[in-house]
Design a protein around this nucleic acid. Structure first.
Lengths: 137, 137
DNA sequence: ATGCCTGCAAAGCTTTTGCAGATGC
DNA sequence: GCATCTGCAAAAGCTTTGCAGGCAT
């Protein structure tokens, strides 16, 4: 992710924006709340206001750079847009998030919508899961 | 839904609780927000506090009488538990909610979770749809 | 009678907004 | 230099909680 990706979206390449992009691409796929990002910035010595984090994330979402999820009902988490569509499973014990994609499910969704006289615009699928019990025990 | 269903859940059969159940079962499947229910009560002349509506709905949810959904991220809607599992599609133009069930999708979800070493505990699937354009136009 | 319930008001939380100063281009 | 952007503080909107009085059993 580069400054020019921001300009392309009509956004100036400011420190808060670049830092938030960096944090979102650290390590594997990140699913972070605004508060998470705010704290990571603070821990790194960047004094970015929480309001700015929210504003920037909203702008990124509108620009299509970031996707907003509501795995829990009381706050949103944000993920860098990869271009590859996928859904998520969330472990109810550890909170771990796993991404997956399944063409059959995607197709069935379109079929079901069509059967009811609708076109599918978007969808949200979250699997809440628990680790399988260990078979050796 | 009867007073004894409430007692079975350890809840006294009070007027607010009975009225809220009544409202939830009026007409077809209802997907109402706390505010919706609060206003319907007020319109019917029942002075039930909004806090009570929230408290009662939370109790009903814990008792398994009601299901909470988060179709929109900024408020919850509640639905009487019918015993028949189903998912939902929401029309992005009218807000209309349609229920549907599909065994293939259910099965695929369990398979995908299993493939990743998890058991499926629960899931949330919402289709956001738009009416098909009229073919005669 | 007593313990559960309710209404009201206040508080909690995430998220948004107003505004004056700061910064990118 | 000028428009955009940011930090701070305040506000907003949904939801929860504390408390004193009220109701079901």
């Amino acid at each position: 992710m580069e400054p020019r990706d921001l300009r392309k979206a009509g956004l100036k390449a400011t420190t808060p924006r670049l830092r938030i992009l960096e944090i979102l691409q650290e390590g594997g796929p990140q699913h972070l709340s605004a508060e998470d990002i705010y704290r990571r910035l603070a821990d790194a010595g960047d004094d970015v206001g929480l309001a700015t984090v929210y504003r920037v994330l909203t702008q990124f979402e509108q620009a299509g750079l970031v996707t907003r999820h509501n795995f829990a009902s009381d706050h949103s988490v944000f993920e860098l847009e990869s271009g590859r569509h996928h859904d998520h499973m969330v472990c109810v014990e550890t909170g771990r998030v796993v991404e997956f994609a399944n063409d059959d499910i995607e197709r069935l969704q379109r079929e079901i919508a069509g059967r009811h006289g609708y076109d599918l615009v978007d969808h949200s699928l979250v699997l809440y899961v628990r680790p399988k019990p260990n078979p050796t025990s």
